[in-house]
Amino acid sequence: MEAIRPIKTEEQYRETLKRIDSLIDAEPNSTEFELLEVLSILADDYENKHYAIEPLDPIEAIKYEMEEKGLKQKDLIPYFGSKEMVSQVLSRKRPLNLKIMKELYQNFGIPAEVLLSH
C-alpha cells in the first residue's frame, strides 16, 4: 500500500479526490473505509486552507433574500420600522439593531451568526 501523505499541491488534491471517489462505497469497518476516512480528513484540511469561504456579509445576505423573494426596499418597512431605516441600513449608513436582526431571522431565515457578523 502506498504511504499516505499530507496534500500540498492542487495535483495531489485532485488525485486524492479520485481515490476518495473510488472508495466511496467501502464497507464500514473495512481497511478501505478507514482509508476513505483518512483521505477525507486530508482533503477537508486542504480545502479549508485553500478554498476558505469568507463569512457572509449581513447586508449582502439581506439583499440576496430580497432578490430571491422578489422584494423591494418598501417590502422591508414592516421589519425595519421605516423607509428611512431600510435605506440607511442597506446603504451601510446605519448598523442593524437587535430588533431588526430578530425580524430578519424570524421572517427571512437569515442565520443569526450572519446578521451578527461584521
Rank of each mutant, 00 (worst) to 15 (best):
E2D: 14
E2K: 12
E2C: 09
A3G: 12
A3W: 13
A3F: 14
R5H: 15
R5K: 15
R5T: 14
P6G: 06
P6Q: 08
P6A: 06
I7E: 01
K8V: 12
K8F: 14
T9G: 03
T9V: 05
T9K: 08
E11W: 09
Y13L: 11
Y13N: 09
Y13S: 07
Y13W: 11
Y13V: 05
T16G: 05
T16Y: 05
L17D: 03
K18Y: 12
K18F: 13
R19S: 10
S22N: 14
I24G: 06
I24K: 12
I24W: 07
A26D: 06
E27N: 13
E27W: 11
P28S: 09
N29G: 11
S30V: 11
S30G: 13
T31R: 14
T31A: 15
E32S: 09
E32W: 03
F33H: 13
E34S: 11
L36Y: 02
L36N: 00
L36I: 03
E37S: 12
S40R: 04
S40W: 01
I41F: 11
I41D: 14
L42G: 03
L42K: 06
L42W: 02
Y46Q: 02
Y46K: 03
H50C: 10
H50F: 07
H50I: 05
Y51H: 12
A52C: 05
E54N: 13
P55R: 11
P55V: 09
L56Y: 08
L56W: 08
D57R: 05
D57P: 02
P58S: 03
E60M: 12
K63T: 02
Y64P: 11
E67F: 08
E67K: 14
E67P: 06
E68A: 15
E68P: 07
E68Q: 15
E68W: 07
G70Q: 04
L71D: 01
L71V: 01
K72P: 00
K72T: 08
K72C: 04
K74C: 12
D75L: 07
D75K: 07
L76A: 00
P78E: 01
P78V: 01
P78I: 02
Y79W: 06
Y79D: 02
F80K: 00
F80D: 00
S82Y: 03
K83Q: 13
E84W: 04
E84G: 10
M85E: 10
M85F: 09
M85D: 09
V86D: 00
S87A: 08
Q88Y: 10
V89A: 00
V89I: 06
L90A: 01
L90W: 00
S91Y: 03
S91N: 12
R92Q: 10
R92T: 04
K93N: 12
R94N: 03
R94L: 06
R94T: 04
P95F: 03
L96Y: 03
N97L: 10
N97W: 10
L98F: 15
K99Q: 15
K99M: 15
K99A: 15
I100A: 02
M101V: 09
M101H: 06
M101S: 10
M101A: 11
K102I: 14
L104G: 01
N107Q: 10
G109T: 08
G109V: 10
G109W: 04
G109F: 07
I110S: 00
P111S: 12
P111K: 09
P111W: 06
P111F: 06
V114F: 02
L115M: 01
L115F: 01
L115H: 00
S117V: 08
S117C: 08
H118D: 13
H118Y: 13
